Simulated assay, not measured.
Amino acid sequence: MNKLSKRMQAVAALVQNTTCLADVGCDHGYVPIYLIQSERIGHAIAMDVNRGPLLRAEEHIREVHLEDYIETRLSDGLTALAPSEADGVVIAGMGGALTKRILAEHPEVWKKMNNLVLQPQSEIEEVRRYIYAEGFHIEEEDMVEEEGKYYVMLRCVPGKAAPLTDVAFRYGGYLLQTKNEILKQYLIKQRQQFSEILKKLEIQKLMPEQTVLQKPELLRQSATQQDELQQKEDGSTRRFERQKELEEKLAMIEEAERIMGEKI
């Protein structure tokens, strides 16, 4: 049975040096099934916070007669896993904030492991920073595109390492060093998107706006007119802040291009 999506195949490929794998948020249980069948691991604990996914996983495990190799547990994150019970973990398909919460709640469990394979759906930079702050580092990364969406997966191992630069935390030091082709595609799309938005903001800035009235005149205006003027001032401030944010993101992309050694 290999019903893994491209994203989950990339996640499974990062599982290394693991005897017993904990799969947090196991859903259908396809990752541990695949890894057992390919003799990459010897045992797995498939865990999910909801009963429904566990029942589906149990059904799939029975279909391939792997009940002796994969057990299931109802668990909120790593709660149902004891320290040293597994030497590797997969946490995939969750938001970055949730991924960090799961790790932060049970450091006594995952800090005894050889490998963490993480695939946060958002806030990837924050997850990278958290891993380094907690005494682990990223040894390998991958990035895939599937149905128009981009996914990053990280293999983290114990041991402190030199902190990454801001651009490496943002886009992945390993991906930059290996000149990952999917990252190149992603950066091109990001550059186009940010540049187009920046042009629209610059056009808006050039459009004539009603001059803000001096204080004596402002006092004679109705409350509604004053609110309208304030909204325009607020809009200008937000536009300036957004423009600055986009310029910083474009500068980060240029730095990523420099590291990868080519203009993309």
Rank of each mutant, 00 (worst) to 15 (best):
M1G: 08
R7P: 03
R7T: 06
M8R: 10
V15C: 12
Q16G: 02
A22W: 02
A22F: 03
D23Q: 06
D23H: 07
D23L: 09
G25L: 04
C26W: 00
G29V: 08
Y30S: 07
E39K: 15
D48I: 09
D48W: 02
N50W: 05
L54V: 06
R62V: 09
V64Q: 07
V64C: 10
T79G: 00
A80S: 15
A86K: 00
G88Q: 08
A92K: 03
M94L: 12
G96Q: 03
K100A: 10
I102C: 05
V109D: 00
W110G: 07
K111D: 00
Q119Y: 05
E123T: 00
E126K: 13
V127H: 03
R128W: 04
A133C: 08
E134A: 09
E146G: 08
M153N: 05
L154P: 01
P158Q: 11
K160V: 15
A162M: 12
L164A: 10
T165E: 12
F169E: 06
G173A: 14
L175Y: 00
Q177R: 14
K179Q: 15
N180R: 02
N180S: 05
E181T: 14
I182A: 09
K184V: 06
Y186V: 01
Q192F: 08
K199D: 13
K199L: 13
P208G: 03
V212W: 08
V212E: 12
L219S: 11
R220T: 15
S222V: 09
Q226A: 02
D227N: 10
L229H: 12
D234K: 14
T237H: 06
T237V: 13
R238T: 04
E241F: 12
Q243L: 01
K244A: 11
L250M: 04
I253T: 06
A256H: 01
I259E: 04
